[in-house]
Design a binder for these strands. Structure first.
Length: 486
RNA sequence: GGCGCCGUAGCCGAGUGGCACAGGCGAGGGACUGCAAAUCCCUUCACCCGGGUUCAAUUCCCGGCGGCGCCUCCA
């Protein structure tokens, strides 16, 4: 399988330390607020990568951190007059629930920064000892010039040289630093801030060091793949590389850097600071997990993805199409097997050919830098074939047709679950949360059937239109009246 | 200002040096239906602009224009 490697700026065959085992580190959240659908997009990308590799027989060791101590957490804690710890715990619990509801596989290991303070202090000390870092009044900074003089790759990931970064001139001036591009490994605690004791006084880790320490601790060096969204390329991942390589002396420390595109709204990046975010929780409640996942996967993971209600409604309609196709196949399979003849055999073999071709192309698309958008196209070819077959062929299927229909259904559900869709939800009959409501609905449908039989269509239509206003759509099919939520 | 990505039908969105079969949504027409819905069929025929390379460019190169991301916390 090929993945686009940000470090080399090209698609590369995924090379791993051990054959068919992927050691993957994904940058997790800073839990200072509810997670939004932009975060969820990134996590969905790595979730699909993992599901796909596991489907192909790989083992994936997936480490995803919680940056549970940070300026923003402290700020939020002060606003709400609670401890930083409480804030972090609260939003970690919330995010874990949201991720589960979205159908994300739980990472193998989810380390917290606050549980690795000693490891971090050791790492910072080691960097100082080796001359890659210096302490200034309780702070410790990474010495980029020193690093660059030995490793010659600072800026490689983000495509900027050290000089260009300085010329950017927006690097925060900090009197303590020897150089504007140097960055904090350890930050001295200000009054009323949480702290840990260290050789440099009371303080807490800087932003990037936790990922270096925890990725190396749990995955070793070099490890296979490091993921995150593009907005982490600089400075976070650039600095992480410098720290890790200075620490271990191995270059490159990560074989493949994978970055997902950001989620935008009206063309602007979704972010807390712009206030244009939709929480994952709200989106799940309103739309459900499958539509959200389809929206994510219908754009290539490296492209920006613009979120809109219109698009998610489109995703819902697409999903209904898949659902209908599966239903149609089930119905056909449930009918009596008809006698075989040449026409049926030929139809079956045509369907089989389409199925095998679409499946092959699906895998090729996935192997080509996780092109889920293209892969979905092939999946919809199978869907379309099933629907067309159903519309054209009125007689019940023969043995050979049943064989291929059954294969189509299995393949569809299989590929859908590889992409992480909840197939059970897709296949399950519609339900209302309220059992009584559902009974009443069934009663109404029964009454309406009687009305229709007596050709009292005015009343039957009244029931249908009133239910429609309540968000229930009725569809009269040869198998009786079906209902669904709208 | 620097670095990078992108510009494909009404919308979203894959893709390719050789007639653009992606796929989805939407719209219009038809079939089906008591009427709808769903479904099927048909229509909706698009590669930002200007150069260059080439027998051939939407695809490669250069230059514009436009959009976005990063350069400050960000998934």
């Amino acid at each position: 399988m090929k993945i686009y490697n940000t470090r080399t700026r090209q698609k590369e065959t995924l090379k791993t330390r051990e054959p068919n085992v992927l050691h993957m580190y994904v940058c997790g959240l800073t839990p200072y607020d509810s997670m939004h659908i932009g975060h969820a997009r990134a996590f969905t990308v790595y979730d699909v990568l993992r599901r796909y590799l596991e489907h192909r027989g790989w083992r994936v060791i997936h480490v995803q951190n919680w940056t549970d101590i940070d300026d923003k957490i402290i700020q939020r804690a002060n606003e709400l007059k609670v401890s930083a710890k409480e804030i972090a715990e609260r939003f970690i619990a919330e995010a874990e629930e949201d991720c589960r509801d979205l159908g994300l596989l739980q990472p193998t290991i989810m380390p917290c920064v606050t549980e690795h303070i000693n490891d971090i202090i050791k790492a910072v000390q080691m960097l100082i000892d080796r001359g890659y870092a210096y302490a200034r009044s309780g702070n410790v900074y990474f010495d980029v010039s020193k690093y660059e003089s030995e490793f010659h790759d600072y800026g490689l990931l983000s495509g900027q040289t050290r000089d260009e970064l300085i010329a950017g001139a927006r690097v925060a001036p900090d009197e303590d630093k020897d150089d504007p591009v140097d960055f904090a490994l350890w930050k001295a605690a200000k009054p009323n801030e949480p702290f840990w004791d260290s050789p440099w006084g009371k303080g807490r880790p800087g932003w990037h060091i936790e990922c270096s320490v925890m990725s190396l601790k749990y995955l070793g060096a070099p490890f296979d793949l490091h993921g995150g969204a593009t907005d982490l390329v600089f400075p976070h991942h650039e600095n992480e590389i410098a720290q890790s390589q200075a620490l271990i002396g191995v270059k490159p420390i990560v074989t493949c850097w994978m970055h997902s595109g950001v989620l935008t709204v009206g063309g602007e990046k979704m972010s807390k600071s712009l206030g244009n975010f939709v929480t994952l929780r709200a989106a799940l409640k309103r739309h459900g997990k499958n539509p959200l996942r389809l929206l994510y996967l219908s754009t290539h993971y490296r492209s920006p993805l613009d979120y809109s209600e219109e698009r998610i409604e489109g995703a819902k309609a697409s999903l209904r199409r898949i659902r209908t196709a599966i239903e149609v196949i089930n119905t056909k399979l449930a009918t009596e097997t008809s006698e075989e003849n040449d026409d049926k055999k030929e139809r079956a073999s045509e369907l089989m050919q389409l199925l095998e071709e679409s499946t092959r192309l699906f895998y090729e698309a996935m192997d080509d830098d996780l092109n889920t958008a293209e892969a979905l196209g092939y999946l919809f070819r199978i869907v379309g074939a099933a629907l067309t077959y159903n519309a054209i062929v009125k007689e019940s299927p023969s043995h050979s047709e049943k064989v291929v229909l059954s294969l189509m259904k299995d393949r569809l559900t299989n590929l859908l679950s590889v992409l992480g869709f909840d197939v059970r939800e897709l296949e399950a009959p519609e339900r209302l949360e309220d059992a009584l409501g559902e009974e009443l609905l069934k009663l109404l449908i029964e009454v309406r059937a009687q009305l229709r039989q007596r050709r009292l269509f005015d009343l039957a239509d009244l029931i249908r239109s009133k239910l429609s206003e309540l968000g229930i759509a009725l569809e009269d099919t040869p198998q009786g009246t079906q209902w669904r939520k709208t």
